[in-house]
Every structure is written in C-alpha cells, then in structure tokens.
C-alpha cells in the first residue's frame, strides 16, 4: 500500500505544474520538469558524459535535441585575455562567500544584475528612439553607451535591428545594476546542474522568441561568467517583477518591451530542503508569468540578464 501511494505521489508530481509541500522543482533535458524530494544526481556535469548518457538512455530525445546554440563554443577571445589578467575572471564580479561582494560596488540592492542587454527588432529600417529609465535613483554599476543626464539613451534604430547612438552603432544597449531583493520573486523557478541551467535559460529565451544574436551573446557570455558550481536554482524575473522595480519608457509607436532576468543562486551540492537556504527553493512553475513570444509589434525591444545575490 505504501509503495502504491509513493508511486501515485511521484506520478502526480511529474504531471503537475506546482510541486507538493516539501518538494522543489528541478529540470533536466531528459525528463523535463519534475518535483522531487531529494535532488537526483545527474551522471556528470560535463557535456561528453551527459551526451553519452543521453544516447544510452534516450536516443530519440538526443536526436531531436536542437543543435546550433546549445553546442559548446570555442573560448571567445576576451575570455582568454580575461583569464590571463584577472584571477576572479570566471565570476560575474567580485565574489565572496558564494555571492557578489557588495563592498566593491556603489548603490543599494542585494540583487546584482550584472549584464542586462537590450536588443531590438523593428519593421522600420530607421526609427528614432528614446529609452529612459524613469526610477528616481537607480543603482547603476555600468552602462554602454553612457546614459545622458536623464538616464536615457537617445538615437536611431537602424537596419531594423541595431542601435545608433551619437554616430556609433551598437549591437545592443547594456547596463549593470543593483535591484532590491524584496521586489524580486523567489517562489517560481527551477534547479538544475550548471550546464542544464544554461540550457534552461536559453530555452526560456527561445520561448519568448528572442533574436538569434541575443541567444548567441547570452551563451557566449554566460558559459564563461557563470561560476563553476555544480548546481544552481533559477528564479526568473519577467516584466511582472521588472516593470514596477525598474520602469522604462520607450518613445516609439507600436512598441513592446520584453524583459527577462534570471537570478541564479549557486549550490555546492544538490539543493536539499533540510539545509538552511538564503532564499526558498523554487516550488512553482514560472511559465505563467513568462511574456508571450507570439504577439508581434512593429518594434520589439527585448532584454535578457543574469543576476546574483550580493552581501
């Protein structure tokens, strides 16, 4: 009887979007989502081992797995240089006690969004735009290009998918910023190995129809800059959290701004509900709040970012 009950519980957990009490959501390419009591250890946190495992266990799945962006890329040139000069290069910033060391950065906020990039897709070959951060005192860490004294970027969208600001062409607009932890959500998300965390985020961006250049930049940057922990829990922050916390006004007609910031919390071992946690382990599906990738506007701004907690 006890065995039947356990089987029913497992079946229910796998078929449901929300997990039961004392369970967390995990994700891996083979089984997709699952609610588990104890995190199952994957065969290994390396591409070759996982591919070998996937071929053995589920060859059909492996054959159907999308190629291109998920394959490991050669080290970008800047990673070779960064490794040479900076001992903490493979971390998103100054790192201490599994978090960003806030003592080295100005401003307020425990959530360090270290690289939101803003991309554009437009039906217009050329269109003037102003992109303004309207919060009274945002805690920027860096921006490219520099903002004007009203915290705005002004320029033209050119060739439908690039920005021109003061006669210079940018593939994307970039900023680092600190955000208040209490305005972020830590209920919805999932936990996975480092490799599967990257894959999960890329798939999430794909579901929101991010342009190819955004996906390529994301993978190139974060394969290098996500620190080497075996596990991460991912807490996606979409427009639902970001619009009220860091409001943006874009002065273009028929425009839509899709936002996605993944707060990553590293774990040295498989996340366990019995261990003390900095934030609760995720138990609910974030998909309900994911912006739709189906609705098209004349001009689409899309932003991705990865954030880490700081203390």
């Amino acid at each position: 009887m006890k065995t039947i009950l356990s089987l029913l519980m497992i079946l229910f957990a796998f078929s449901s979007h929300a997990c039961l009490v004392n369970q967390i959501r995990i994700w891996e390419p083979i089984s997709g989502y699952a609610c588990v009591q104890n995190y199952p250890t994957p065969p290994a946190d390396c591409i070759v081992c996982q591919q070998s495992y996937q071929n053995t266990i589920n060859p059909i799945w492996f054959n159907q797995f999308p190629t291109a962006i998920f394959n490991p890329q050669p080290q970008p040139w800047w990673a070779t240089q960064g490794n040479f000069f900076y001992p903490n290069f493979n971390y998103p910033g100054v790192w201490n006690n599994n978090q960003i060391d806030v003592n080295y950065y100005p401003g307020q906020g425990q959530v360090h969004a270290m690289k939101p990039n803003v991309y554009v897709e437009s039906i217009h070959n050329e269109k003037k735009f102003t992109f303004s951060f309207t919060a009274p005192d945002p805690s920027f860490i860096s921006t490219t290009p520099m903002l004007d004294n009203k915290n705005s970027w002004k320029g033209k969208i050119i060739n439908k998918d690039r920005f021109e600001v003061e006669d210079t062409i940018y593939d994307y607009l970039f900023y680092d910023i600190r955000l208040p932890k209490e305005k972020m959500q830590f209920e919805r998300g999932t936990c996975a190995t480092r490799e599967n965390t990257i894959v999960w985020m890329l798939e999430d961006l794909l579901k929101m129809s991010y342009p190819a250049i955004a996906l390529q930049d994301f993978e190139e940057h974060w394969r290098v800059k996500i620190p080497n922990y075996p596990y991460f829990c991912i807490y996606p922050q979409y427009n639902n959290e970001l619009d009220p916390t860091l409001p943006v006004v874009i002065s273009v007609d028929q425009v839509r701004f899709t936002r996605s910031l993944y707060v990553l919390v590293p774990h040295q071992k498989a996340p366990d509900l019995d261990d003390p946690q900095i934030v609760p382990l995720p138990a609910n599906d974030p998909a309900e709040f994911r912006p739709s990738g189906l609705i098209k506007y004349e001009t689409m701004f899309k932003e991705w970012g990865v954030a880490f907690l700081g203390e």
Binding site: P87, G93, I141, S142, M146, I169
Partner: peptide
Amino acid sequence: KERLLLMHTEVPKEGTFQFYLK
C-alpha cells in the same frame, strides 16, 4: 598581491561607456 576584476564591458570603436564606482 590580489587583483580583483569588478566589471567589464564590450564597446564598439568610437563608442562610450560609464562605470559607477566608489
């Protein structure tokens, strides 16, 4: 004795950037 990388940004030629620092 210790070098800490705080941030880095990719900038196109003739582009601009700003670092906010203590």
